[in-house]
């Protein structure tokens, strides 16, 4: 055993075994033995990792290929469920709930439009019933790019409040989600922290006035527990969405 060549041979054989394991050439008993060694013998595990690092350079010339759009959605669904990729308009039930719960005056219109999306989604124009029509419904879907955080908001003009429903996502442990209204190039105005369930937020008068003139964006940022200490977003903006008028 003290013969250096024998030791070299042994280490060469071990290295070849580590390479076969990394290459996935082993099967049956050989595979099981190599697995056992990889978890019990740090030296062998190191050799396997070294082979991985070496072999991976063979992929340097491999050209990237853009995956189909649907593939990312499929990954998200597999991991986070259907809710993570629902489009705005598939959440009809939620809109209906919002409308019924808080928009007595506009409920008729909201239900009419929500239950027949084709009539207005197709053309982009809505025939509003008569001159006595209530104020148009203003809605926003505030969603992160991947759909992992998603909220729906509806503006109730009678009370200058925004009704909020969280559909997906939550604050990281020890952090808070803060809602902001952004009008044009103006500084964001905090609408407060996002709570657990359904929520109603009163719009500051200035924001409510702007809603009529400037396109408004609602956004959510990641903030320390208790909210932004500065009155402006301090953390990453996780999700945003424009207020749309139906």
């Amino acid at each position: 055993m003290s013969d250096p060549t024998e030791k070299d041979d042994e280490s060469a054989r071990d290295s070849a075994l580590a390479a076969e394991y990394a290459l996935r050439l082993l099967d049956g008993d050989e595979l099981r033995m190599a697995e056992a060694r990889a978890s019990a013998d740090p030296g062998f595990a190191r050799e396997v990792a070294a082979w991985h690092e070496d072999l991976v350079t063979l992929t340097d010339p491999v050209a990237p290929v853009k995956p189909r759009r649907a593939t990312k959605g499929a990954v998200m669904t597999r991991l986070f469920g259907e809710a993570s990729r629902q489009g705005m308009w598939s959440a009809v039930g939620i809109w209906r709930g919002l409308a019924l719960a808080s928009m007595t005056a506009t409920a008729g219109l909201a239900l009419l439009m929500v239950s027949q999306p084709g009539t207005w989604l197709g053309t982009g124009t809505v025939e509003r019933p008569g001159t006595s029509a209530p104020a148009p419904l203003q809605l926003a879907e505030i969603a992160s790019e991947d759909g992992s955080l998603r909220l729906l908001a509806a503006y109730v003009p009678q009370t200058d409040t925004v009704e909020i429903r969280r559909v997906a996502g939550e604050a990281r442990p020890g952090r808070a989600l803060e809602l902001w209204a952004i009008a044009g190039a103006d500084a964001p105005v905090s609408l407060g922290l996002i709570g657990e369930g359904a929520q109603s937020v009163t719009l500051p008068a200035a924001v409510a006035r702007q809603l009529a003139q400037t396109p408004l964006v609602l956004a959510i940022s990641d903030e320390p527990a208790g909210g932004s200490p500065t009155g402006q977003p301090t953390g990453a903006v996780l999700a945003a969405g424009p207020v749309t008028t139906l």
Binding site: M76, F80, S84, S144, D146, S148, L149, G169, A236, L238
Partner: peptide, 9 residues
């Protein structure tokens, strides 16, 4: 962090 996962993807 799902948004990090999205960026990583």
């Amino acid at each position: 962090d799902r948004s990090a996962f999205s960026s990583l993807y």
